[in-house]
Structures are given as structure tokens and as C-alpha cells.
Design a protein around this nucleic acid. Structure first.
Length: 955
DNA sequence: GATGTCACG
DNA sequence: GACGTACGTGACATCC
């Protein structure tokens, strides 16, 4: 024979699992996950490229598992019994593996009631007996038994395409310490937790290998036990002999299965291009398509947000049982970090990052506020302990960073470094991973760098573990906490670098050796966290919310923060003065009534004045022994005819408005932009809502006339207007949908006033009083009702409140079902879920402490509703930019439509007056249709839109 | 840093 | 028999 035949047998089922765990969750244009399919396709591709090579394939077939049952189940009912179900986003990929195989026009073997391993064994032996060479494309250790050379001179070896390693008899001996024919004996002793093969309890690979080496066979090893010295091992060998013998049968491959396709028919020639092109294009594997067209395509799937991980790293173990294995990573070694001070060194790191196709990034700055902070340095990590810090504007003298006389250590000029880094940070082919990467996005956006594509470990943690905490601590998503929790690693703290209080120094003054340890560690730890947390998303079902809702929102929210909103400072100054005068007047009157001066703002002093000195009744002490003096208490006193209570209430309102708003907002105006830039937290609220800080722009007054004057200070730039669009009654609409409450759905569909409808259902008649009570009850339902809570709100007895609740449940029966079933699910699983799959954990839902438990129950009833509402507006926000762009409305441009604020159910935009008519319908449509197509609601989402020169006028 | 209060959805 | 009563947030003042 001129050319030896060489049969390649591809263990497709094993491959897809490994590809799944190693590759990021790519999706095709239709949104189906295809990460593992992509890995599989490239592997076939590689094999196809080897067709003409010396030991390349002449024949090839793919073998898949058709069903999970085989003869092994008949002799051992526990076989593979503890296998977890495959991850939810892997399941749809199984059929695609078949499509891929057919696209390459390759023979596919899948037989019922036969495991792929047995089929591979049968084919391999048959081919080798005919003198063919055989290569098994797999890394399954069970298959290693087959390696060797037949009497007819046919060799069998294995190819691990992920490690690009050939496995022959030598490699087997290295791994097991025995030749291939004894591998089965070793496996029988050590067992296999993945397949649930028992082996001998307490015997692992090391002991098993030694026993077989010493005695030459399983039977001899087991027999030797009787003569062994007394030991744990001896006992175990004697006691579990039966397990080992059973295991020996289980690990033996069946080599005489009937062959559905003759090996001669597996010959491959040129692969016909048409089916392959169709397949590649269907799934958006564009780089492979380019290669097919003759060009030399890029390294990864360039149309995908997420390039594949490099082939030479990230090789972990397959998950064992249900345990989520810690990625195999060395301990953090800060001495391994490099301080990058030359352009050459920077170039080398940039090249490494491109090669790795995944880089963790962290920026160090002079302050916390991303809008004002100056860039001090950047750190990168491409692997555990493979991290560097690039100092940029460090200085050592007391002079400021901008001072031309400042002493500066050797550093690459800022502009040079950023010019070098920009292509990396913006490259589609390299995934940038950050911890709270929104911050880095904002800092670098000010240097004209738009980081993409991105992943964020903080957001991943939030998608997985929102609400999870142990004993009140450890529920956060900050890096130091995550490092401690998941990696058992304690990070250097910012305090250790910069000190605190008056002695604190800016990060730019930290000596480079220490700064490198701190900054590079941040990138290193981020990368490690990514490797640990990201795979959990798919396994635990967090992929959808992370990829479709939260991650796309990061650059959108970053943009909103950078836009900020214009605030009329003069107006605030005027208000502050007015409030100050009024507060002083009220304070005088209060002191006069009290008969002495005291700090009105001190609840402690006020309580003593009211309930001791003045002798009012109704003084209740809290657990701290203090009298309560909150609004409800003061209102009761007011009703009793206590003039001081009214005055204090007025004083409090004005003091609050002045300190929290009119004074503080002036301070918050950014001197460079003249606007106020809040910071949104994407992980702040456990339900999935955003929260706003520094300043909080989600609690600007609106409910009172005087408070609304503050809203009038939020204004549009000249020639522009503000547009406010809010979801009307969104939580009640969602409750009507989720609890399937027909009367409420009907009312929403008809555009009825929902509280009127509730009043009619509950009380039979609608007037101001019944509507107000109905409104209270509606909200009480959303918040998880209790008879006492409702009684307190309505000023009625608890029994009466219970009657109202009963009536409500009777009129709207779906509500009670929703509450009961929600609680059941949460008790059982530990978490609630929104319509879009966002989880919120309730670790105290089964607490023995009644108050704790009931608190969790109320929160658990509310979370799916509040969270779904949050999901919906987030989806609207993520889609808004593209929709506005399609309409030619230039989202984000100074003369286009800018989205500025989000207040839970409201979005605020700034736009040129001339664009209002065009923008309104686009905004309304995006918001109204934000749930689709993922979720089809049975209630319409109503949107109210208004415009005006101020935020107040826009309502 | 904890507590009380109050601004918002 | 005691518990402590609506869900989710953030900021400020006071006081220890």
C-alpha cells in the first residue's frame, strides 16, 4: 500500500462539554448560544486542514452519544447517576453539533443504547486489525486503554486538540504509571466520580497506580491485600473488593459493537463548500467564512462580542459532580508583577494581550469621581500572576501632579501610552475584563478611548449572587470582598497605599514599587475572579440577564453619567436663601413655644422637649431608649392640637430641602462642565434596580409644591428642552400580568384609572375616599401585605384591615395564588426570579426568627415585580441608542438626543427643541415594547411623556 | 459608625 | 409569649 490509511475518530460528545467550559458564551445572530459549537467547528476545521499532512486523516467519523443508557446501567444502576443536567445554554447546542458535522459532510455515528466510547473502541480495533493507523480525537482517560499497536501493525493513538497534544503509550505511562493495557485496572481501583464508578473508597490515582505497578494486575493487587500489614488500605481493599471488580467491568470498553458504517466508507476527500458556507453564515462565524473564501481571517469570531479564549490557557478540569471547581490557579505572587516604564515593555504587554485575547484592565486615578479624576496609571493582566502596572503621572515632590517642577519617576509619556493602548482597548478581538469597568470606561472616555468589548466581574457577581449574604455580611460585590470570598485572597487595600484622613496622599504619590503591587494585583485578581465567576453564569442560569440586560447597560449608563444634567445655580442659591430665612423664623417660633433653645434637628433633644418638658402623650421609645419623633408621630401631635409639631414638621421639610438639595447640589456642579454628574450603581439594589449617588438624582423632590421648586433648577441648555418619559403604574401592570388578575388586566387594557377600578371592585362605589384607600391597598399588595401594616396606613383596626385584604383576594384571586406560589418557590430554591430570569436571593426566608422570616417574605413577594420593572426599563435604555440612531436622531451628540437620567420608571432626555416631534414616538415605542420579544405581556405598558425647559415643566 | 429622619420610585 | 409591622434606595445631622 503506497499510503497508509489513517482513521480519525472524533469523540464529539466529550468535546462539546470541554469546549463549552473553555469558551465564552458566544451567541449567533438569533441569540442561540453557540460557544461550544464554535469550538467544535474550529476543531473540525483544524483537522480538515491536516488532510494532506503525513499523519493527517484519510478517513474520519464523528461519534456522538445518542442516549445516556448502555449495558453498564443494567449491571450497575448507579452508573452516571449523579451527573448534573447539562447547563441550560449548552442544551440547545447539542443538535447544532450534528449540523456542524453534516456541514463538513462527515460521517456521523450515533447508535442508541451504545456509548460513544464503546463505538470508538469497536471502530478503532477493527481499523487497527486491518493495519490502519487510528487517532482518537478525545482526551477521555477511559479511551487511553486502547492506545498501542496491533499485530497487523496498525497503531492507535489519541489527539487532544485543545492541548494540541498527541497521546501515545509513553504519555499514558506518564499519566498512569502503567502501559495502556493496564489502565483499566488502575481506573477500576480509583473509580470515577463523574461517571459514578465506585472504585475503592479512599484510593486515588497515586495509590491505584502503585498497586497495579507492584502487582501487575487488578486481581493480583486485590489478592495481595490479605498479606498486607494492617492498615487502612488493607481494610479498604478487603472490604470493597466487590466494588473494584464491578468497576473493572464498567471501565472495560465494549469492542465488538456492530458497525453501522463501514470504515472504508469514511474516506474523506475535499470538503464541499456549500453546506459549510451556509452553516458558518447562519451562526455568524465570519472569520471562518473569510478563511473559506481564501482570505486569511482574523484569530477569532470578529462579529461576536466575545472572542474565544486562547487555546493554550484556561485548561481546567471538567466539573466533578455538582461542585464548581476553583480554577486551577497559582497563589497570588505580587513579586511577579512588572512595572512598565519603557515603550518597549509596553509594546510587549500589548502584544501579549492581543495574543491572549482577554485582558483584565484597571485604571488608577487621583480621585474617586470618574468625572474629575486624573489618570495616574493603568494595570493589565493576561493570566494569573501575569500582570503589570503602567505608571503614567506619578510624582514624588510635594508639588502637585501638574507642577512642572514636580519630581517624576521614569514613566512613558501619558499621550504615548494612551496612543499605544487605544487599539488594544478598542479591539473587537480582545475582551477587556474589569471590576466595575464603568469607572474605567468613563476615565478613558475622557481620553477619547472607548473600551469594547467588555465584561465586568462585579456585574457577573451581581447576576449570580444578588441578595446572598451570610449573617448579614459578605453579600457585596466589591473586589476585596469577592477576592476573599471566592479566591481566599486578601488584597492590598487602598488605605495601605495612601493612608487615611489628613495623612492621606493621592495615588500618584505612592512609590512605584508599592503602586505596582497594588494596581497589578487588582488586574490579576479581576482576571482570576472572571475565570471563577463567568462559567457559573451559564451553569446557574444567569447568562440571559447578564448578557441581554446588565452588560449592555454598562456603556449606556457610563454615557449618561458623562452627559450629566444642567443645574441652574442661581436658582438654587435663591432657594437656599429663602429656605434659610424661613428655617430661622421657624426655629425662633419653636424655641418660643418650647420655652427654651434647643437643637431642633436633634431627635433626642426634640423628643425630650415634647414628651418630658411639654408632657405630650404618645411618646414611644425605640430600642435605643429614644422617643420617636418621626413624621407620623408629629402628625398625631398636630392632630391633637400641638402647634409646635406643625412648626417642627415645616422646619424639617425646609432643613431637608436646603441641606440635601439646594446646598448640596450647588457643590455637586462640576466646574469643568457646569453640570451635575451622578454616579449610578448597577449593583446597588438587590432587585436589579439602579441606584444613584454623589449626588442621588433619583430622589429629587416632586411630591410637594415647595419641593418641586428644586426640580425647576434642573434645566435644558439654551435651544434645548428636557423630555421626561415614564412608565405609568408599571408595577401594578406587571402584578396584573404576573398574577394573572383578569379585572386589573381588563382595566389596564381599557385605559381605566386603576385605583378607581380597585375601589369599584372593593367598595362598590368610587369617591375620593374609596379611591385613596384602594390606592393604598394596591401598593400594600405590591409590598407584601400585613394586616397591621395596612391598618397603620389606613388608620383602622387590624381586623378591619384583614377584612379588606380578604376582599381584595376574593376580587382578585390571582394575587393570592401569586403570593403563595412565589413564597413556595423562594423557600425551596432560595431565590426569586423576574420574568427575565434575574435572581434575587433570600437567605433568611426560612429563618426561625419570625420577624426576619416575614421581612424576607415581604421582600420576596415584591422582588419579582420590582425586578421585572427594572429589567424592562434597562432593556429600553440599552435599545434607546440604536433606535434613536436609526431615526437619525444622533443619540449622545451635542445636537442630538441625549439620555441623561433614569429614575426607576422614568427616563429624562435632553434634546434640541426641533427634534421633539421626531424623538417622542421613538422613545415611546422603545419603552412600550421593551419587554418583547423575550416576554409577551398580557397588559399594555403605558408611557407618559412631557417636555419643558425644566425637569418640573417636563412633567 | 450607628441612629433617626426623610427625599424618591 | 414575644416579636414588630409595606418593598427598594441614599444623604444628612446628630451623637457617641
Amino acid at each position: 500500500m503506497a499510503d497508509k490509511q489513517h482513521l480519525y475518530l472524533v469523540d464529539g460528545s466529550a468535546y462539546i462539554f470541554r469546549a463549552y467550559h473553555r469558551l465564552p458564551p458566544l451567541t449567533n445572530p438569533e441569540g442561540t448560544p453557540v460557544g461550544a459549537v464554535y469550538g467544535y467547528t474550529t476543531m473540525l476545521w483544524k483537522l480538515a486542514e491536516d488532510l494532506d499532512k503525513a499523519d493527517g486523516p484519510t478517513h474520519l467519523a464523528v461519534v456522538l452519544d445518542k442516549s445516556s443508557k448502555s449495558f453498564r446501567n443494567e449491571i450497575y444502576d448507579q452508573y452516571k447517576a449523579n451527573r448534573p443536567a447539562p447547563p441550560e445554554d449548552l442544551v440547545p447546542q447539542f443538535p447544532l453539533i450534528r449540523h456542524a458535522t453534516r456541514a463538513f459532510s462527515l460521517p456521523l455515528i450515533e447508535e442508541p443504547d451504545v456509548e460513544a466510547d464503546d463505538m470508538i473502541a469497536s471502530y478503532a480495533r477493527t481499523a487497527a486489525r486491518q493495519g490502519w493507523d487510528v487517532t482518537i480525537v478525545s482526551s477521555d482517560k477511559d479511551l487511553m486503554q486502547l492506545i498501542g499497536t496491533s499485530e497487523q501493525g496498525g497503531t492507535i493513538d489519541m489527539l487532544d486538540t485543545m492541548k494540541s497534544a498527541r497521546i501515545g503509550p509513553e504519555e499514558v505511562r506518564e499519566k498512569f504509571g502503567v502501559p495502556p493495557e493496564l489502565v483499566g485496572d488502575v481506573l477500576a481501583l480509583m473509580g470515577d466520580s463523574v461517571d459514578n464508578i465506585p472504585g475503592i473508597f479512599g484510593v486515588g490515582p497515586k495509590t491505584a497506580s502503585k498497586l497495579i505497578q507492584d502487582h501487575g494486575s487488578l486481581t493480583a493487587a486485590l489478592d495481595s491485600a490479605t498479606d498486607m500489614k494492617k492498615s487502612k488500605l488493607k481494610e479498604r481493599l478487603l472490604e470493597h473488593r466487590g466494588d473494584a471488580e464491578l468497576s473493572r467491568v464498567l471501565v472495560t470498553l465494549k469492542e465488538d459493537c456492530p458497525l453501522p458504517i463501514a470504515i472504508e466508507d469514511m474516506k474523506i476527500a475535499t470538503i464541499p463548500p456549500e453546506p459549510l458556507t451556509a452553516f458558518l453564515s447562519e451562526h455568524g462565524f465570519t472569520s471562518l467564512m473569510r478563511r473559506l473564501e481564501g482570505g486569511n481571517g482574523g484569530p477569532g469570531p470578529s462579529t461576536q462580542l466575545h472572542p474565544a479564549k486562547p487555546q493554550n490557557e484556561g485548561e481546567g478540569h471538567a466539573p466533578q459532580g455538582n461542585r464548581q471547581p476553583l480554577p486551577d490557579m497559582p497563589d497570588v505572587d505580587r513579586s511577579a508583577y512588572e512595572c512598565v516604564q519603557s515603550v518597549e515593555a509596553l509594546d510587549a504587554w500589548i502584544e501579549r494581550s492581543f495574543k491572549a485575547r482577554l485582558v483584565a484592565v484597571d485604571t488608577e486615578t487621583s480621585a474617586l469621581d470618574a468625572m474629575q479624576a486624573e489618570l495616574v496609571g493603568i494595570s493589565l493582566a493576561v493570566g494569573p500572576n501575569e500582570a503589570c502596572y503602567i505608571p503614567l503621572t506619578h510624582y514624588t515632590s510635594d508639588a502637585g501632579g501638574d507642577d512642572m517642577f514636580a519630581q517624576r519617576p521614569e514613566q512613558i509619556p501619558l499621550a504615548t501610552a494612551l496612543e499605544k493602548l487605544k487599539p488594544l482597548l478598542e479591539s473587537d478581538a480582545v475582551l477587556k475584563v474589569g471590576q466595575n469597568i464603568k469607572y474605567d470606561l468613563n476615565v478613558l472616555a475622557r481620553h477619547d478611548i472607548a473600551i469594547a468589548p467588555i465584561d465586568d466581574t462585579m456585574i457577573v457577581s451581581f447576576a449570580l449572587d444578588a441578595g446572598r449574604s451570610q449573617d448579614g455580611i459578605g453579600g457585596g460585590h466589591g473586589m476585596d470582598e469577592l477576592a476573599q470570598r471566592h479566591l481566599g485572597h486578601t488584597c492590598l487595600t487602598f488605605k495601605e497605599m495612601c493612608g487615611t484622613g489628613k495623612k492621606a496622599i493621592p495615588f500618584g504619590q505612592v512609590p512605584l514599587d508599592r503602586a505596582t503591587e497594588y494596581a497589578a494585583e487588582d488586574a490579576d485578581v479581576t482576571l482570576r475572579l472572571y475565570r471563577h465567576l463567568k462559567p457559573r453564569l451559564a451553569v446557574e442560569g444567569g447568562t440571559r440577564v447578564y448578557e441581554r440586560v446588565d452588560r449592555p447597560l454598562i456603556p449606556v449608563v457610563a454615557g449618561m453619567e458623562r452627559h450629566g444634567i444642567r443645574v441652574d445655580r442661581d436658582r438654587l442659591v435663591g432657594l437656599s436663601e429663602r429656605f434659610a430665612t424661613e428655617i430661622a423664623r421657624l426655629e425662633g417660633e419653636i424655641h418660643e413655644i418650647a420655652g427654651q433653645e434647643f437643637a431642633v434637628g436633634s431627635p433626642k433633644q426634640l423628643g425630650e422637649i415634647l414628651f418630658e418638658k411639654m408632657g405630650y402623650k404618645g411618646g414611644k421609645r425605640g430600642k435605643s431608649g429614644q422617643y420617636s419623633t418621626d413624621q407620623s408621630v408629629l402628625e398625631k401631635l398636630d392632630a391633637q392640637g400641638a402647634p409646635i409639631a406643625t412648626k417642627v414638621l415645616e422646619w424639617r421639610q425646609l432643613a431637608k430641602l436646603k441641606s440635601t438639595y439646594t446646598d448640596a447640589l450647588q457643590q455637586a456642579i462640576n466646574p469643568n462642565t457646569g453640570r451635575v454628574h451622578t454616579s449610578y450603581s448597577l449593583t446597588g439594589a438587590q432587585t436589579g434596580r439602579l441606584s444613584s449617588t454623589d449626588p442621588n438624582l433619583q430622589n429629587i423632590p416632586i411630591r410637594t409644591e415647595i419641593g418641586r421648586e428644586i426640580r425647576q433648577a434642573f434645566v435644558a441648555e439654551p435651544g434645548n428642552v428636557l423630555l421626561a418619559a415614564d412608565y405609568s403604574q408599571i408595577e401594578l401592570r406587571l402584578a396584573a400580568h404576573m398574577a394573572n388578575v383578569e379585572p386589573l388586566r381588563e382595566a389596564f387594557a381599557a385605559g381605566e384609572d386603576i385605583h378607581n377600578r380597585t375601589a369599584r371592585e372593593m367598595f362598590g362605589e368610587v369617591d375620593r375616599d374609596t379611591r385613596a384607600r384602594a390606592k393604598t391597598i394596591n401598593f400594600a399588595i405590591l409590598y407584601g401585605i400585613s394586616r397591621w401594616g395596612l391598618a397603620g396606613r389606613l388608620g383602622i383596626e387590624a381586623e378591619e384591615a384583614q377584612d379588606l385584604i380578604d376582599t381584595y383576594f376574593a376580587r382578585f384571586p390571582g394575587i393570592q395564588r401569586y403570593i403563595v406560589s412565589t413564597l413556595e418557590t423562594v423557600r425551596e430554591r432560595g431565590y426569586s426570579e423576574t420574568l427575565f430570569g434575574r435572581k434575587t436571593w433570600f437567605p433568611r426566608i426560612n429563618s426561625k426568627n419570625q420577624a426576619e422570616r416575614q421581612g424576607s417574605e415581604r421582600a420576596a413577594i415584591n422582588a419579582p415585580i420590582q425586578g421585572t420593572s427594572a429589567d424592562i426599563i434597562k432593556r429600553a435604555m440599552a435599545r434607546m441608542g440604536p433606535a434613536l440612531a436609526d431615526a437619525g436622531l444622533q443619540p449622545g451628540a451635542p445636537d442630538g438626543v441625549r439620555m441623561l437620567l433614569q429614575v426607576h420608571d422614568e427616563l429624562v432626555f435632553e434634546l434640541p427643541e426641533g427634534l421633539v416631534d421626531d424623538a417622542k414616538p421613538v422613545i415611546e415605542q422603545v419603552m412600550a415594547e421593551a419587554a418583547t420579544p423575550a416576554v409577551e405581556l398580557t397588559v399594555p405598558l403605558g408611557i407618559d411623556i412631557g417636555t419643558g425647559l425644566s425637569w418640573d415643566d417636563a412633567h
